[in-house]
Design a protein around this nucleic acid. Structure first.
Lengths: 209, 209, 209, 209
DNA sequence: AATGAATGAGAGTTCATTCAT
DNA sequence: TATGAATGAACTCTCATTCAT
C-alpha cells in the first residue's frame, strides 16, 4: 500500500517546510531543535533520524532554496536588454526574499565564511553572462558588450542588496530596490551597448550629425 | 573630585571597546559575558552594574558605531562628480581591503546578524548623500539629482563588492573592481544629472559627427 | 526441515560472536545496539527478537565464555610440582602476550567493568585447581596442600602481572616476570607441600653441612 | 566572617564525598551529573563551577584516594619482616577497599588504558623497596635480599587482587585475600632472606650440621 | 561599586526500546 | 520473522542572570 512510505514522506516534508519557515522568520540561532520538533508534532529523536545535526538541516535548506534560480535565462532572451536583465534580477531577488531574511542571513554567513564557496557566485555570474550572450546573439546587444564586466556588476549589485537587506531588515525592500535600480540606472548602464531599434536609431542618428 | 566618575567612565569605555573588538572578531553569539568580563579583568556581577543585559551592551555598541562620523566628503566636493564619487568609493574600499579579508568576513557576519546594526549603513549612505549635496551646491550636479537613490545604489554596489570579496578571496580584487565600475559605468549613471562644464560640452557636441 | 531453525540459530550465533568481539574491543558502554545490528547486517527490531534487551545479550555472552573450557592441564600433571605450575603459568602468559598489549588492555576493561564477568576467573582458578589435584593424585604434592588457596594465589599473581603490563607497557616483560617469580619464589611457596622425590631428599639432606 | 568561604568549602566537601559514595556504589557510568547534584542539593550549573567535566571529578576522586598510601612505611620498619610487609600490604588494600569497588573499577580502567600512567606503579614499588631497605638497615633482612624483585612481586600480587576484586565483586574479599596470602605464603617467600632471631638461629644451626 | 558562587532553563545529541507494517 | 521509523527520557554541558556578601 505504501502507507508507511507516504507517512515518511509527509514527515520529511513537514519537517523541511516548517523548519524552513521558522528559520526564515527567526533566524538559525534563535530556533531550537526543541521548537522545530514541537511545531512538527514529532519527537526529538525523530529529527535526528532525518538530519544528523541541526547544522545539516540548514545546509539542506540552503541547497533547496538556491537551486531554484538556474537555467531560467532562456525566458528572458527574447526581450529587450533592459527588460530582460531587469526582470531576471528582480525575479532572482524575489526568490531570495521569499526564502526569508533569516535564511538570507544564514546564507551570507555561510558563503562569506572561510574557503571555497565560490560555486554559487560562479554560477550566478555564468547565468547572467549566458543571458547577455543570448541577447547579443539575438541582435539586441552589440557584439562589443563587456559581458563579463556587466555580469559581475549586476551580481555585486544584487549581492550588495541582499547584504543590505540582512543589515536593515524591514527598513529595506530588496525587490523594490532592485526594481528601482533597474528602472533608474540600468538603462544608462546598458545604453552604450544596446542596438537601438529602428525609430530610436533614426532619431539618434539625426540628433547629432 | 571626579576621580570615581573617571574610573567608572573608564571601565564603561573599556567594556565597550573590548566587547566591540571581540564581537567583531568572533560574532555576537560566540562571545559570552564570561569572556568579555575576563578580557576586561572585571567580575561578572560588575558587568551588570554597567549594562542591564548582554543585549543592552549590543545596543550601546551600535550607538557608538553610529557616532563614528568621519566627514571626509569635503575633500572630494570640489572635483567633477564622476571623479569625486569614484575617488570616494575607491578610497573607502581601499580602507576595507587594507583591514584584511578576515576582518571583512567578520564584519559581514557582524552587520548581517540581526540585532539592528543599521548604524553603519545609515552613516555610509548619509556620507554619500552629503557628498552629492555638496556637488549640487557647487553647481556640478543638477538640483533634480536623485540623491538618496544614487547614494543607496553606490553603497549596495560597494557592499556587494565586499561580500563578493569575502566569497571569492584572492580571485576577486575589490579595489580594482570598484575602479572599473566607476570608470565604465558610473559616467553613464551620473550622466543625466551632470551639469556639463563649458569645455566638455563643447568637446562633446563636436565629438559626434 | 530445520532450515528455518538453522537460520535462526545462525543469526543468534553471529549476533553473539560479533557482539563479543565488538565489546571486547571497545567496551560494553561504548558499543551500541545500532552498531551491533549494523555489523550483523540485521535490523534493529530483529535484535529484539533474539534478545529481550542489550543486558540479556551480555548475560548470554558471559555464559558463552563460561563454556570455553580448554583443559590443558593434563600435559603438566606428570612433571614435578614447581615445574608443572611454572610451565603452565608461563605458557598462559605467553598466550596473552602474543595477543598483544592492546587486546590485554581491552580484556582488563572488559572483565573489570561490572556486570558479572566472573566466568573467566572461575575457569582459570578451576584449571589450576585441577592441575594441583592431579599433582596430588600423582603423589608429588601432599594431600594437605591448600589447593584452592594456591590456585587463587597463582591467578591473582598472574592477573596482577597482566594489569602491570597494561600499565607499564614496554617497561614490563610479563612472561619474564612470571618466569622469575616461578623460579625465585614458587619453590618456597610450594616447598611445604611438595613430596620430595628420593634422590632430591638425599641430595638435600647432604647439601647442608 | 568567612561565612561565604565556609559555605563554599562545605559545598565542595559535600560534592566530593557524595559523588564519591555514589560512584563507589554504582560505578562511574551509572551515576549521572543530575543524580549527583540532586543528592547534593545544588544546581546543575554549580557542579560545573567546581569541576569542568564529569571526567574531571573522577580524576580528582582517584587522586584523593590513592594519595593516602604514601610514606607510611616508617611505621612498619621496626617490625619483623613478615609482619611489616603483611601489615603494609593489608593496610594498602584496606584503603582501596574503602574507596569502593566502583572507584577501583574506574582506577583499573584509568591506569590500564593507554599511555604513561606509570607513576602510580613506580611509587608503589618504590614504597615497598624503601620498606625492605629499612628492614635490611635494621638488620632483620639479609643484605643479599632481592629488594626490587620482592617489591615487584608484592605489587603484582596486590594489583592482581584488586583486579580480581573488580571482576568478582562481592564474591571476593580483597583484604582477607591479602591477609591470607601474607599469612600462608609470605613467610615461605621471605624465609631465605630473613635474619633469624637468636633462638631460631640456634635451632637452625643445630638442625643441620 | 565590586564580587563570583549559585542558579536553572535550555542547548544539541544519544540510544535502548517499541510497534505498525 | 524482519523491518526501521518513531519515541522520549536521559545524557553532558552552557550561559545569561541573580544576589548575598
Amino acid at each position: 500500500m505504501g502507507k508507511r512510505e507516504d507517512k515518511i514522506h509527509q514527515t520529511r516534508s513537514r519537517l523541511l517546510s516548517i523548519a524552513d519557515r521558522m528559520i526564515a522568520e527567526h533566524g538559525y540561532e534563535e530556533v531550537s531543535v526543541d521548537q522545530i520538533v514541537a511545531a512538527c508534532g514529532i519527537a526529538k529523536g525523530t529529527f535526528y533520524n532525518y538530519y544528523e545535526s541541526k547544522a545539516a538541516l540548514i545546509t539542506a535548506l540552503s541547497q533547496q532554496h538556491f537551486r531554484q534560480v538556474t537555467d531560467i535565462t532562456d525566458t528572458y532572451a527574447s526581450k529587450a536588454p533592459v527588460e530582460a536583465m531587469g526582470q531576471y534580477l528582480t525575479e532572482y531577488m524575489q526568490v531570495i526574499k521569499d526564502a526569508g531574511i533569516g535564511l538570507a542571513r544564514q546564507w551570507v554567513r555561510y558563503i562569506s565564511s572561510a574557503a571555497g564557496n565560490t560555486g554559487k557566485w560562479d554560477q550566478d555570474v555564468s547565468n547572467i553572462t549566458s543571458l547577455l550572450e543570448k541577447l547579443i546573439a539575438s541582435g539586441s546587444l552589440k557584439k562589443a558588450t563587456p559581458v563579463q564586466e556587466l555580469a559581475e556588476l549586476s551580481m555585486t549589485q544584487l549581492y550588495g542588496a541582499v547584504l543590505t537587506w540582512t543589515i536593515l531588515g524591514e527598513n529595506f525592500q530588496p525587490v523594490k530596490n532592485i526594481q528601482h535600480v533597474c528602472r533608474d540606472f540600468l538603462p544608462s548602464v546598458l545604453e552604450p551597448y544596446v542596438v537601438a531599434p529602428p525609430y530610436v536609431k533614426a532619431f539618434k542618428s539625426h540628433s547629432c550629425s
